[in-house]
Amino acid sequence: MRLSPDEIIFWQYGFLKLNATIVFTWALMLVLVVGAFLVTRKLSRDLSRSRWQNLLEILVTGIEKQIAEVGLREARSYLGFLGTLFLFVAAASLATIIPGYEPPTGSLSTTTALALCVLVAVPFFGIADQGLGGYLKSYMEPTFMMLPFNIISEVSRTLALAVRLFGNMMSGAMIIAILLTITPFFFPILMTALGLLTGLVQAYIFSILAAVYIAAATQTRTPKAAPKP
């Protein structure tokens, strides 16, 4: 049984290979970027605007508001990273209604890559906000004895991010595959609908957790209670 779209390899040349994960990722990127380009190509700055523009504005301002609610002061500077996380994971989940599609987030390699990006982004934004000393000092809060625990926490939460998303997406695809063999037609449709819901929830959780980690690294002075998944 196939657990990951990594295993579908279209082309390989030694170390280099082109598997389904990368191909579907590219396809998603293409759809997202071209869609955004087509809408934003003729943006209206007046009071009346197109429906697509309205949709994108709701999306962007909604993400911005969510980031601000987590407690990040300058929501716009994190919008690129956190918003793209959400949009990519959500689009990967929503596209599962297309037959023959394999979500790239169902590959542990993709989720690991995203978790690694978060792992790097947290100190990056933390240092940008507090400076190197201020950020490193936050590892010794409340006392220096907490340093190893803080480091373990940093690594383990990255692993948790990757495995949580992978597990959810992979399990969704796998349940549908199993159900298809047992009870075709009805249950797979139900589970696909459920999979869409869990996919969106996972996208929300992933990006909100990333936001909370970044907020914890940047907002140590006035931390705000963050929602836990």
Binding site: D6, K17, N19
Partner: peptide, 18 residues
């Protein structure tokens, strides 16, 4: 389950998407 080439490619893909 983890293919490190794919991980690297996805990191790059993600950054490009950002």
């Amino acid at each position: 389950l983890i293919d490190w080439f794919t991980v690297g490619a996805q990191v790059i893909n993600f950054l490009v998407l950002v």
